[in-house]
């Protein structure tokens, strides 16, 4: 609370807007400080790398979700989509072993398959919402159920496991480092930069924002609304497939419990980051911070005995509610009036 009082003096200099934009960064710093005070090992290189790697899945998916939400949509299917893509990837790679052996080729086939599935699944969501004129919430609730049951069906209710030899080849994608950073973190960084550029610097990003602000205005301004909206779901699908590609080598398996609740974590990361849920304003930088915040909470709980690890969801829930409350425009004014 001391931080908020300190900051309430600043808006006059920086204008209230910057405070809002800096909010997630301040929150993350505070969390890191708490983590460090509770256990100095929190800031050890090993833990930081671990934290970043774990953030990568949700982070990459959340970058995609930022586009969907900015354009006024929502995608609830991403967790199930990741599970079904992981499952199909494993099946495809296992059956490709006979023809292509256990080398890099098979892994590449699996990755290619993942990307095609991700794009395809995004396209389906996009078409059903735009051409089918069904609300995104309903469409993706439907596909969420379908994908989840498909992976259960493919795994016959159990677990799909990757061929042991391929696992050896594929393993480095999750566990190896490159210039001191694990590969998933690099993928996260690249996706984030690309996402930031796309949303903030290109015409496409401008169109997403315009559609989320007011679809009629977008339509009357010569924006191909259906096409742009569909593309946001395709981008979301691509992000899910990239996240899956780096997730599969971690455990080398997929089951009906893979990716459960990822959709909510992704949406939470987006909202904590300052993107407006009803669309029209999106922040990739905020989304990345949001993903880091969510992972950091879990990580801190692992480090201490003060709060049970089982309360991870409670802490995340509280953070989401507080984040949205802080983003309400009148907060700054109320503070200064006190």
């Amino acid at each position: 609370m001391t931080e908020t009082t300190m900051n309430s003096a600043k808006p006059s200099l920086l204008r209230g807007f910057d405070l809002k934009a800096a909010g997630p960064a301040i929150a993350l710093l505070i969390l890191c400080l708490i983590g460090f005070l509770l256990n100095p090992a929190f800031l050890s290189e090993g833990n930081i790398t671990n934290l970043l790697t774990r953030s990568a899945f949700i982070g990459i998916i959340a970058v995609g979700a930022t586009f969907v939400i900015t354009a006024g949509g929502i995608d609830l299917s991403v967790g199930s989509m990741a599970a079904v893509i992981a499952g199909v990837m494993i099946i495809v790679m296992n059956s490709a072993v006979d023809t292509f052996g256990t080398g890099v080729t098979t892994v590449l086939i699996g990755c290619g398959c993942s990307i095609i599935l991700g794009l395809g699944a995004g396209l389906v969501n996009g078409f059903l919402t735009t051409k089918g004129k069904i609300e995104a919430f309903i469409v993706t609730l439907g596909t969420m159920g379908i994908y989840r049951s498909l992976v259960t069906y493919f795994a016959d209710g159990g677990t799909l496991s990757l061929n042991y030899d391929i696992r050896g080849v594929y393993r480095p994608v999750y566990y190896d480092s490159f210039f001191g950073l694990p590969i998933p973190v690099w993928v996260f960084i690249v996706v984030s930069i690309a996402g930031w550029f796309l949303l903030n610097r290109t015409a496409f990003g401008r169109y997403c924002t315009a559609i989320g602000s007011n679809e009629s205005v977008a339509k009357y301004s010569a924006i191909k609304v259906d096409r742009v909206k569909t593309l946001t779901y395709v981008i979301q699908g691509l992000c899910v497939s990239l996240a899956t590609i780096i997730y599969v080598p971690r455990l080398g398996s997929a089951s009906s419990s893979t990716g459960v609740l990822w959709e909510l974590e992704a949406i939470a990361a987006v909202i904590i980051g300052g993107t407006v849920l009803k669309g029209g304003y999106g922040r990739i930088g905020g989304t990345i911070l949001g993903a880091l915040i969510l992972t950091t909470i879990g990580n801190i709980l692992n480090f201490t005995d003060m709060i049970s690890n089982y309360l991870n969801g409670t802490m995340q829930g509280l953070i989401i509610i507080v984040a949205v409350w802080l983003q309400r425009g009148d907060w700054g004014r109320n503070k200064s009036a006190d």
Binding site: R206, T209, A210, S213, N214, S216, V217, A218, K219, Y220, S221, I223, G280, Y281
Partner: peptide
């Protein structure tokens, strides 16, 4: 249908 009321003038002008 004409303007994005929540946005600034620049993105509105060029949209």
């Amino acid at each position: 249908k004409g303007l994005l009321l929540g946005q600034k003038m620049r993105p509105n002008l060029s949209l």
